[in-house]
Design a protein around this nucleic acid. Sequence first.
DNA 1: CCGCGGGCCTGAGAGC
DNA 2: TGCTCTCAGGCCCGCG
Length: 292
Amino acid sequence: MPELPEVETVRRGLAEVMEGARFDKVEAHRGDLRWPLPKDFAARLAGQTVEQLRRRAKYLLADLSSGDVLIMHLGMSGSFHVLREGATLAPGTYYTKRAAHSAHDHVQFHMSSGALISFNDPRRFGMMKLVPHSELASEPLLRGLGPEPLAKEFDAELLARLCKGRRTSLKAALSDQKIVAGLGNIYVCEALYQARLSPKRCASSIATRLGAPNEYARALVVAIKAVLRAAIRAGGSSLRNHRRTDGALGEFQHGFCVYDRAGKPCPRRDGGTIKRIVQGGRSTFFCPLCQK
DNA sequence: CCGCGGGCCTGAGAGC
DNA sequence: TGCTCTCAGGCCCGCG
């Protein structure tokens, strides 16, 4: 379940070995990811230098010296693993230049930094795509994404405006990448808990509060930023597939207040019990007592 | 334009 | 032990 904090954690790990490095060799063991890789995928990458590795929403964007941008998405089960040259594999063995790929390692980058980067994705909901930089602004995958929640411009006024007139639930609205980019099921649940807002509340209702304009929206913005920052600091949440690029687990799953905690007492010790409901076919976790 | 639900895909875990 | 079933939730697309 890679959401913004997991993707950001991966970005930081990959940037160390990709930025300023060249693709010496690219192997596509399986091209049928969410969408098929282009036929010339490996050839278009080979010899190119990665100038910068950025993140937009849950997408990783590698700016290449050729003028192309490599767009990558982890889908549901994707992860990147980095092996550095000289790294110890098993007792007595070392990674030199060619390490056999393991199950579901669909794409491998051999970088001039000496790193072998493997993209592993059992469910193949992930994707990779090459787009000329000049076409990035009109790229359908990125066009229409909402603001970055950690950007300064993401404030109560903006969130209130984006939710205005929305007849859907607050849970669905925050999960909508067109309203805020990068949140998923886990962090929407956690942020709503921190803001003491019910996931069932109508999205349009956060814009106004009698006598205190945008107070709900303000609390929500504060909560979203705080939860995301804490999760990034913890290296993301490891439930099934998320790993840092060095293979270590994230730690934020230990910090969940509501996610996957149905039946457990509310951490606020208000006597409430965390409840699980289904919204839009997805699980929502919240405390009915303190989230109104 | 908006909101909802189906589909893609595999592994983990539950239940018999 | 081993089979079958359900569920996980990223995103796109089509329908009303």
